[in-house]
């Protein structure tokens, strides 16, 4: 039951994020929308890991390992995009 609920929540987050990613014209909002999609996808992975509990395991470690990598990648990407945004919004300077 809870797995279904979390799955639906993940799907909703992905949907909202994708909508924002496509509709919003500014880069900062697109970046936030990307993070929203990311959160939804990670939640879906959590649900997938949890479903192994039905087979008697505490949880499937493989999706958890993937989520950790995904979070690290999303964090690094957000940092890179934020740096680019900060450089662009700052005063014009010679490189």
């Amino acid at each position: 039951m809870s797995a279904t609920l979390f799955g639906l929540a993940g799907a909703a987050l992905v949907g909202i994020g994708l909508f924002g990613l496509i509709v919003h014209p500014t880069a900062l909002r697109k970046l936030l929308a990307f993070n929203l999609v990311g959160a939804g996808v990670f939640l879906v992975f959590g649900v997938v890991a949890r479903r192994a509990a039905a087979a008697g395991l505490a949880g499937d470690p493989v999706p958890q390992a993937i989520v950790i990598t995904g979070i690290v990648v999303a964090f690094a990407a957000t940092a890179l995009a934020a740096t680019l945004l900060a450089r662009l919004s700052g005063p014009e300077e010679e490189p």
Binding site: A27, L31, F34, V48, A74, L80, L84, L88
Partner: peptide
């Protein structure tokens, strides 16, 4: 160049996250 890089990054990120969602569904 920075504007182009930022746009490239946003496209690439949207692509990665869609790919990752697909991987999640396949694994599930």
């Amino acid at each position: 160049a920075l504007v182009a890089a930022l746009r490239y990054l946003l496209f690439a990120l949207a692509g990665s996250i869609l790919y990752l969602l697909g991987v999640g569904l396949i694994y599930g």
